[in-house]
C-alpha cells in the first residue's frame, strides 16, 4: 500500500515530503516510546505516534521509518517539518486516535511488526 493510499484512507494531511507519497508501506508500528521504535529491524514502516517533537523525526531518520503519522490531532512544528524535509521523511497529521488509525490500517492489510 502506498503512502498516497494511506493518506486518502485516513483523510490525513501531508505536511512534509508530499513528493514521497509513492513509497510502499508494509508495516505499521504504533508507539509514543522512541526507545521501542529504535529496536525495529523492518523497513517500509509507517510510525503512528502522538509524540510531536523533534526526536520523533530523528528516531524515524535513524530507524529508516518512511513516514510519521501524527495522531490525536497533534501538529508538526516548523522544526520537525524542516528536519523531515532534510531527511526525506513524510509527515502526516491525523485527527483521530492512535487506536482508530491502527484499526483502519490493519483492516487495509498493513502488517503488525510483532
Amino acid at each position: 500500500m502506498t503512502l498516497q493510499q494511506i493518506a486518502e484512507l485516513l483523510n490525513a494531511r501531508v505536511v512534509a515530503r508530499p513528493d514521497k507519497l509513492y513509497r510502499d508501506i508494509s508495516f505499521a508500528f504504533a508507539s509514543d516510546l522512541m526507545s521501542d521504535v529504535l529496536t525495529l529491524e523492518q523497513r517500509k514502516i509507517i510510525l503512528l505516534t502522538g509524540l510531536a517533537n523533534i526526536q520523533a523525526v530523528r528516531t524515524a531518520e535513524m530507524s529508516d521509518v518512511s513516514c510519521i503519522l501524527l495522531v490525536r490531532n497533534k501538529k508538526a512544528s516548523p522544526e520537525m517539518i524542516r528536519l523531515a524535509e532534510e531527511a526525506a521523511i513524510v509527515i502526516m497529521e491525523y485527527d483521530g486516535s492512535m487506536f482508530k488509525a491502527s484499526g483502519i490500517l490493519y483492516n487495509a492489510g498493513i502488517q503488525p511488526i510483532y
Binding site: M34, S35, D36, V37, N53, Q55
Partner: peptide, 9 residues
C-alpha cells in the same frame, strides 16, 4: 517526555 528513558538504550 522526549520518548526515551525506557531502559532500552
Amino acid at each position: 517526555e522526549m520518548g526515551f528513558g525506557a531502559g532500552m538504550g
